[in-house]
């Protein structure tokens, strides 16, 4: 399992559009990918799950990926968080 801590950098938090981008990128990998926030673990490939996180500006999340391409998956997700979902 590969994990990484990330912070939501964009001002408006993970609303519908960033969520769509996240699941689109997560969906390209075959690994199981989750976001952990406090006690909750959310499937990163499910758009409503990612929206339900309600992650606002400066929220810290943990990405957990488990599978054959886990390292690439975490790296790709860290990148879109750092770019504030501008792609």
């Amino acid at each position: 399992m590969t994990t990484a801590e990330i912070t939501v950098l964009n001002k408006s938090g993970i609303h519908a559009r960033p969520a769509a981008l996240i699941v689109q990128i997560a969906g390209k990998f075959s690994s199981d990918i989750h976001f952990a926030r406090d006690e909750d673990r959310i499937n990163a490939k499910s758009i409503l799950g990612v929206i339900a996180l309600g992650a606002s500006h400066n929220t810290t999340l943990t990405i957990e990926a488990d599978g054959p391409d886990e390292k690439e998956a975490v790296a790709a997700l860290v990148e879109i968080f750092q770019s504030k979902f501008s792609s």
Binding site: I47, L48, A52
Partner: peptide, 17 residues
């Protein structure tokens, strides 16, 4: 639902939310 604001929405592929 983990958040009641979201619970009664669904995603249907091809339609969206």
């Amino acid at each position: 639902g983990i958040r009641k604001e979201v619970a009664h929405f669904m995603e249907i592929r091809g339609l969206g939310i």
